[in-house]
C-alpha cells in the first residue's frame, strides 16, 4: 500500500454558542484520505468517521475486491456484481483490515476526524489502525499515541509477508514502528485500552 496523498483537505468549523456566561464550542474536521493499493493484499485502516461506517459507505472499490477483518480469526467479505456479500460489516476508525484488490487502484476514504477514540484491546493479537489520519511513530503522542507495554509486538505488512518489531526491556527492536496515513497493523500484547484523542489545539 502506497499512500499517495494524505489528508488533503481539512475544514474546521467552529461553532460557538453562547448560553448565559458559558460558551460551548464544537469542532468538525472533515476531509479525505487517498490510498494507492497494490494488486493483491494491502493492510489499511479507515481513519475517518463516515456516518454508519458500513463497508459500502466507507469503500468505493472495483468488483472483485475482498475485505478481511480480524477478531481472533478472519471475517471475509467480498464485493461482487456491485454488492457486498455482508453489507452490514462496519469499518470504524481504529480498526485495521486487509483489502485485496484485483488490480492496482486508488481509493478515497472520506469523513470526519473522530476526536475521542478509545478501543479495548484483547490479550493477544489485535488488528488496528491509528484512529486518526496521522503518520509517524506509533508510540509518539503526537502521532499514533499508543502506549507501549513490555512484550508488545507490532506486525506490519510488506505486501507479501510481515515484519515484526518488539518492545522488550523498555526499547523497540529493531526500531520503533512508524505508520503511514491509512496503514493498518497487528499488535500482540496484553489486554488494555488504546486511547487516541485528537484536538486542533
Amino acid at each position: 500500500m502506497n499512500t499517495k496523498s494524505l489528508l488533503l483537505a481539512a475544514v474546521v468549523a467552529a461553532v460557538g454558542a453562547v448560553s448565559g456566561s458559558a460558551q460551548v464550542t464544537s469542532q468538525n474536521i472533515v476531509g479525505y484520505v487517498r490510498l494507492s493499493l497494490n494488486q493483491g493484499f494491502n493492510l489499511i485502516g479507515n481513519q475517518l468517521n463516515n456516518g454508519d461506517n458500513k463497508v459500502g459507505t466507507v469503500l468505493n472499490v472495483p468488483d472483485g475486491t475482498a475485505v478481511y477483518k480480524f477478531d481472533g480469526k478472519y471475517t471475509f467479505n467480498s464485493f461482487v456484481d456491485g454488492a457486498w456479500d455482508a453489507p452490514g460489516m462496519t469499518l470504524t476508525p481504529g480498526e485495521g483490515f486487509f483489502i485485496k484488490v484485483p488490480a492496482a487502484t486508488t481509493i478515497t476514504l472520506i469523513g470526519e476526524v473522530s476526536l475521542n477514540n478509545s478501543k479495548a484491546l484483547a490479550a493477544g493479537i489485535n488488528l488496528l489502525s491509528v484512529p486518526v489520519p496521522l503518520a509517524g511513530a506509533l508510540t509518539d503522542a503526537a502521532a499514533g499515541g499508543l502506549t507501549a507495554a513490555e512484550g508488545d509486538v507490532v506486525y506490519q505488512w510488506t505486501g507479501a509477508s510481515f515484519v515484526s518489531k518488539e518492545f522488550v526491556d523498555g526499547a523497540w527492536a529493531p526500531s520503533a514502528p512508524t505508520v503511514k496515513v491509512g496503514e493498518g497493523f497487528f499488535l500482540k500484547g496484553a489486554a488494555r485500552t488504546y486511547s487516541r484523542n485528537f484536538s486542533v489545539n
Binding site: 468488483d63 472483485g64 475482498a66 461482487v80 485485496k100 484485483p102 512484550g151 510481515f162 515484526s164 522488550v168
Partner: peptide, 28 residues
C-alpha cells in the same frame, strides 16, 4: 465475472504472491 471465477483468480494470485514460507525465529 461470477463469484467462482473470482475465487479461482484470487487463489492463483495467492499462490503466485506467496511462494516462499515465512517463519518467526524468535523464542520470547
Amino acid at each position: 465475472m461470477n463469484k467462482f471465477a473470482y475465487l479461482v483468480a484470487a487463489s492463483a494470485l495467492v499462490v503466485s504472491a506467496f511462494g516462499q514460507g515465512s517463519i518467526d525465529i524468535g523464542n520470547r
